[in-house]
Simulated assay, not measured.
Amino acid sequence: MAIFGRNTARQRLKRATQRALSAPTFDSPPDCTPWVIGGLWPPELEAVTPATAVVAEHLKNDLQRIANSANERLRELPHADLPDFARHAEEVRIIDVARSYALSRVESTIRQLRSAEIEFDTDPAIPVVTEVESAIDEDTIEISHRDEAPAPIVAEPIVVEPIEIEPTVEPAAAVEPAPPVEPAYADDRGLKRLLAFVARQESGLRWAVGEREDGTALLVTDLAHGWIPPGVALPADVALLAPARRGGRISELLGDVVRSVVYHPGDQFTAGRDETTAASPTARQLSRVDDLGWKLAEATHWRDGLPRMVHTLAKAGAARTGVLDAEVDVLRVHSETARYQLMAQYPDVDATLLSNCLLLAATEAIAAGDELSANYHFSWFEALNAPQPSLWGSAP
């Protein structure tokens, strides 16, 4: 009996250990760092050299920042009025999202290291870039593509003799009435299709799609007054909210609509993905900001919380002098890290962090040559940072 009891105790201990390792449970204070960044360190940085020391340091700091943001979010859960099963599901979601951002950060670093080993065929006066985030002299770097245009081909003109044709009178044909135009979304299926298309990309946000009286579909989220972050592909046939400060529930952001569908984090999607919905950048079309490049360079100059390279690449992208792919990749890493910090604060976000996310998104877009998206993100920056109307002199 004693041997049987000892074996049973060992089995219970083994099962308990397996459960503890498979599903993390947190005491106070929670620390999900091993589940977020454990095992992600790239083999290329196992032995740090002087050429990779800066890259390794940035990667280490960013990974720790992602883990810290997830830990802060986990510490807030015990104060939320949630049942145990809902709190556990939220813990798992927070860790999964943080892990995906950390993985993207490591993958970007690996691409950066590989890009630094390639000699770029540029002007001989430009040295090979081996440290992407080193100080760059904006006035001396210029990438130009000089392709000689082919000589125009002049073809002999062909003279066609005019032919006289006697007009004939056809009997008037009966005009059939045009078929009635059905609304774009005769039922909720079309709206649900659009909603699932965007909600699958950022399932941690609330989304809503409503049909207006004119038949257009309006897509909204309650993140940052209605701003759609970069990285979310949008269907071509949806309208977005104009940049402005606004609040309220997700359904209130839609305004007057004929019908609507709403997604909340945790809602189930229909089986299978819709492959018929095509993404298009035209959904972010806004009125053009005058002197966009100059204003973006001014807004990123010596701004707290932004790396120095953001201002450099904002100027280079606006001047179209050329930006290296490795530089855009590093800039995208900074943008994704800041965006994850913003998501960790959702639904309450810090105004300064939000402004930096908008500037990073605009700079990343203009450096990549996407002026439409850069115009969209900077328009939101201007709207949210505009001086508030003064109440001085108003009626008591």
Rank of each mutant, 00 (worst) to 15 (best):
F269Q: 03
A271H: 13
I141L: 09
S104G: 13
P265R: 03
R339Q: 14
T216W: 00
Y101Q: 10
L113H: 13
P180L: 09
R200H: 06
A233S: 14
E76I: 04
D123K: 03
D267A: 02
E90W: 04
G272S: 10
L45S: 10
A319S: 14
S251N: 04
E382A: 08
D81P: 08
P281G: 11
T49P: 11
L234A: 01
A196N: 03
F26S: 13
R146V: 14
A70G: 05
R111A: 11
A173P: 00
L241A: 06
L313H: 11
V55P: 01
L360G: 13
Q64D: 08
V289F: 00
A278Q: 13
K192R: 06
A242P: 06
R200W: 03
P162A: 11
Q341I: 05
V48C: 07
I118Q: 13
D123F: 07
P24A: 02
L286R: 15
E72D: 06
Y185N: 12
R12F: 08
T122Y: 03
N61F: 03
P177K: 09
E327A: 11
R303Q: 01
S115K: 09
F197C: 06
A244N: 10
T8Y: 08
R249A: 09
G247S: 15
G210M: 02
L77R: 02
E298I: 15
E90I: 00
G248N: 07
S203T: 09
F381N: 11
Q201L: 10
A196T: 05
A199K: 00
M1R: 13
L353W: 02
V330N: 11
A365D: 12
E161M: 09
Q112Y: 05
P171Q: 00
T270S: 13
I366A: 00
K192A: 03
R288C: 05
T270K: 11
A9V: 11
A314R: 04
L331W: 10
A236F: 08
R249W: 01
E182Y: 01
T216A: 12
D291G: 01
I158V: 10
G247E: 13
E142A: 15
A178V: 09
F120I: 04
P83R: 12
R65D: 11
R75W: 05
E148V: 12
D304T: 15
A23P: 00
A178P: 06
T352C: 07
R249S: 14
D139R: 10
I153G: 03
D31M: 07
A236R: 13
L21V: 08
A244L: 07
D290H: 08
W227D: 12
G255V: 05
